[in-house]
């Protein structure tokens, strides 16, 4: 259990550190609450199909995000292209980031996982599904292994949501460029709102 709520915790932590007036901190908290989002209008239809690109355990967090965002979904970390059509989903959500442990547990090599991801993304394009990339693993889900998966998947996305810590170097933002809207949030739980807004 925790005593903190995100905005209040941020405000109190900053206030404690800098000994700033409480009124200033309330304004800071309000500003955090008034975050703007990259999408002007929803782009995705329900239901969604969730898979990983890199076999990370982060898929569990994304499932909770979608529950909170009231997006009905099915999830299969090792889904094949054929599973996509059979699911009846209108949106594909790819959980970005690699895990050596996850790949090992699934018995999948890096190259095989990249092949699976490419086939799945190609099938999503053929089915005219919206593809949303989600990166919630932060800095730990970056590095040589993860970046290969991120690089392979992001260009196929129509929208990306990322925890800011995972994009401190702008790697994901650069892959999105100007063509793919991206929303960055400070912590995983804050990804509910942009995901909710992405769906009609």
């Amino acid at each position: 259990m925790t005593r903190t709520t995100p905005i209040a915790a941020a405000a109190s932590a900053i206030a404690a550190a800098a000994a700033l007036p409480a009124a200033f901190m309330l304004a800071a908290a309000s500003a955090a609450a008034a975050q703007t989002f990259a999408l002007a209008a929803p782009i995705a239809e329900k239901p969604a199909f969730v898979t990983t690109v890199g076999q990370s355990a982060d898929i569990e967090m994304v499932k909770v995000l979608l529950e909170r965002a009231a997006v009905p979904h099915t999830a299969n970390a090792q889904a094949k292209a054929a599973d996509l059509a059979a699911s009846g989903a209108k949106t594909l959500i790819v959980v970005l980031g690699g895990s050596t442990k996850g790949l090992g547990a699934a018995g999948i090599s890096v190259d095989a996982e990249l092949d699976r991801a490419r086939a799945l993304l190609a099938e999503a394009k053929r089915l005219k599904l919206t593809v949303i990339g989600v990166h919630v693993g932060g800095e730990a889900r970056r590095g040589q292994l993860s970046d290969r998966f991120i690089q392979a998947a992001v260009p196929a996305c129509q929208y990306v949501v990322a925890v800011a810590e995972g994009d401190k170097d702008g790697f994901i933002s650069r892959l999105c460029g100007t063509a793919i809207p991206i929303d960055k949030v400070e912590r995983t739980s804050r990804a509910v709102e942009p995901l909710k807004r992405a769906f009609r």
Partner: peptide, 15 residues
């Protein structure tokens, strides 16, 4: 957890 999600570095967990 914090708000039902894994905590982030810097959070505090009371038990």
């Amino acid at each position: 957890s914090v708000d039902g999600f894994p905590p982030e570095a810097g959070d505090t967990l009371v038990n």
